[in-house]
Design a protein around this nucleic acid. Sequence first.
DNA 1: AAAAAAAGTTAAAAAATGTTAAAACAAAAA
DNA 2: TTTTTGTTTTAACATTTTTTAACTTTTTTT
Lengths: 228, 228
Amino acid sequence: MKYKIFLVEDDKHFAYVLQSFLKTKGYEVDWFENGEIALEKYKNNHFYHLMLIDVMMPKKDGITLVKEIRSINPSIPIIFITAKSQNKDILTGYEVGADDYVIKPFSVDILLARMQVLLNRVYPRSDTTEIVAGNSLLDINRNILILNNKEEIKLSPLELEILKILFQNLNKLTTKNELLMHLYGDVDYFKSRTLDVYIAKVRKWIKQDPHLELISLPRQGYKLVSLK
Amino acid sequence: MKYKIFLVEDDKHFAYVLQSFLKTKGYEVDWFENGEIALEKYKNNHFYHLMLIDVMMPKKDGITLVKEIRSINPSIPIIFITAKSQNKDILTGYEVGADDYVIKPFSVDILLARMQVLLNRVYPRSDTTEIVAGNSLLDINRNILILNNKEEIKLSPLELEILKILFQNLNKLTTKNELLMHLYGDVDYFKSRTLDVYIAKVRKWIKQDPHLELISLPRQGYKLVSLK
DNA sequence: AAAAAAAGTTAAAAAATGTTAAAACAAAAA
DNA sequence: TTTTTGTTTTAACATTTTTTAACTTTTTTT
């Protein structure tokens, strides 16, 4: 999914270069020439992930613009890009609610790094949630098992947890107790039997992948092995 | 509540001045003289809100230190404070996982502003009015959900509260109890059923956004995930 | 090899949740 | 006040998930 950037900059040439660069980096960029137009457009469409705003502009300057945007949306990430490098100006920028203040001339790589840091903070990506084994993939975030790069199987919570542990311990022994403690926090006869039932279910799926096998080691546990 | 700052800086005089300043501004500051000591201390006590780390230090430099800290804690806010002002150095700083990079000599007010911005992002006060997820936007002020950047749906109070919590916990599990406690302050059978009814309603909307999915985890809760 | 224990398998029962519609309630308008 | 409108709750039925039960096979113990 592409991030949408709201760029406000009166220097057409600079804006064009910046816009092109960001597009090559996979961003969608909408450019607005001054604060007045920008505010108008933002009122019509709030759907942006980050704003890059110049300070000195005709019609409506960046500081005023950000004040007004902040009154509508106190949380959207905003970075000032400007030639004004006095401490006083920078502090004003932060005071009106900017997240960062980048001084021209700047390296685009550094602007990019700062944008990425900010975007990652505000829209945290869910931690890696895909485990590959054999010809299959377990997507923990979406609760699905994809067999042979094809068939998607929706998993119930219990199914997912069991597969998660087996996949994480690929080619290693997973004890029954380990599984039960993880699923229930304790161990008893009926829970153990429930697990047996689920193992049977999981085994049916695993069988469909010729590169995977779920081996039972009686009195020890289970081992998901990937075959060549 | 006071924020706890983890300061790593080999220049004793500079560290003392900075520490004193931050204390007058209401922060608690623990100072460590080099990367080696710092890492040792951090391993014993993870309870810090933000780290200020010098790059050039004897024993263990800041870059190495941050790499090691990030492997323990991928999310704690880190600001480099350093005299190294080459683009190459700055980019390295961001690459190893810093949130900001402040070049010496700097005005303490500006450092303070940057710290505040970062702390507000990481430990947000709940005054956000708009949350973006997938291709959609929840406008808490106007009580509307904008789907696919197009269709506006007016939300009832209950609908809004449910969506608010789901959007705030994007890609994370929201337990049914959490939702019920937030909506009603207590939990019973009928309230739980009411929630089920509303989840069905909300799910219909969410389905319209191809970048969003509302997953049910029976016995656990719900998870709003943003795809791709 | 026989008995006991553990695990595999399938089906049924129980519990939880999904879904739709109607009833009850509350706030605003006539 | 009554009517209208919108919201929340309850009810009824459907589906999914988990647990229990019953029976079978495998493994371990005696």
